[in-house]
Design a protein around this nucleic acid. Structure first.
Lengths: 194, 194
DNA sequence: CGATTCTTTGAAAACAGTCAATCTGTGTGG
DNA sequence: CCACACAGATTGACTGTTTTCAAAGAATCG
């Protein structure tokens, strides 16, 4: 399971074998069953988790009980509730597995130590943060400026691999739509597009 | 003009006078007239700018010519198109002044040098980034889960100082609404609330 | 197979956008 | 100092989109 992270850190982060060994020493691996929680509302998010295999989601439960999808994560993505993770406050969100999922989990203190010990990893981490921030900005722009159909189109072309393994009603929620509306949009879209 | 930044760095960032002097040496101050551009679509965003006085906005012009508000910045906020600033690619956004505005501007290289030279400033900068990321996440959540009226309500209570110095149609755009719709929501809201 | 989850459909109601007109306040130039 | 232009806000009537509610049809899993 750890070899996915090894490959990732070597290829994307340009880390040496020695540096990668430090990761192994600081992390734990853990298998989650489909539907199993990694984090529940009220918990504090202590770990940053690398998805070696599988798929997870983070969502907020609204007053009316509706689930609002904040984020998905598949292989080689990181998952945590960064608001809780960074602040140490209890989380308002839930994270659970949409498939049987293998995670490599690192405690915040250990993660920060790795950032400080490995200059290349700091650079890499900052790149990831930047990308994540940019993605948020683009999602916001799409939310305030695109039609529902365009948002859907954006999504499937930006995240095709998520689109075809996540239930449609969760994608609807991610896009700020009801499942019925997305179902209809998709029907329309299937006609115009090919 | 620079004294606003001095106060800010001393109180919020816990910097020493010596460290603050390094800021002065690396920055330029510049006055912008109302409506004057800081950045236009196609430009590269070279500077991170601290608002000493006034108000600015960043927005994207859509295909139909509509302006979509991405962000506002008032006194003691930083403004830049971070996507362009970090990547060095040309920007898709515009930044201009909504009032006569005083900026303290620092080139990316100089800013990074300050981050590296002043440990306290690195910590402070990371805190700002975290806060900014959290704000983005909360805006996304509001976009996908709240009614238009609730989004409006959130906005005025989170950013009252922006609400009462920025034209309503820009706030409508920020919230993903037309100005007419926001005008009507506000009328409703005035009744229930008072 | 039976239960659960997921997706689709239809009809009505609520909501938001569009277009056009009017009203307001501000500031500029004559 | 007034007149006029301009930016901003509001309103009405209409159209289009999205939600809601209810039901039923697929797909998946144990």
């Amino acid at each position: 399971m750890f070899d996915v992270l090894v490959k990732y850190l070597r290829e994307k982060g340009s880390l040496t074998n020695d540096e990668i060994e430090q990761f192994r020493a600081s992390s734990i691996t853990r298998r989650f069953r489909k539907r199993q929680y990694l984090l529940q509302e009220g918990d504090i998010c202590h770990y940053n988790s690398f998805v070696a295999k599988g798929c997870m989601r983070m969502y907020r439960v609204g007053d009316n009980g509706a689930e609002h999808m904040l984020r998905f994560a598949i292989e080689t993505w990181w998952m945590a509730d960064y608001e809780s993770y960074n602040s140490g406050n209890s989380s308002k969100n839930n994270i659970d597995a949409l498939e049987d999922t293998d995670l490599i989990m690192i405690k915040k203190n250990d993660f920060d130590a790795l950032v400080n010990a490995i200059p290349n990893f700091r650079i890499f981490k900052e790149k990831l943060e930047t990308r994540s921030y940019d993605a948020s900005q683009n999602r916001i722009l799409s939310n305030i400026s695109d039609t529902a159909e365009k948002r859907y189109e954006n999504f499937i072309q930006k995240y095709p691999d998520i689109y075809n393994r996540v239930p449609l009603h969760m994608i609807a929620s991610y896009l700020g739509l009801t499942r019925e509306t997305l179902s209809r949009i998709r029907k329309q879209y299937a006609k115009t597009d090919k």
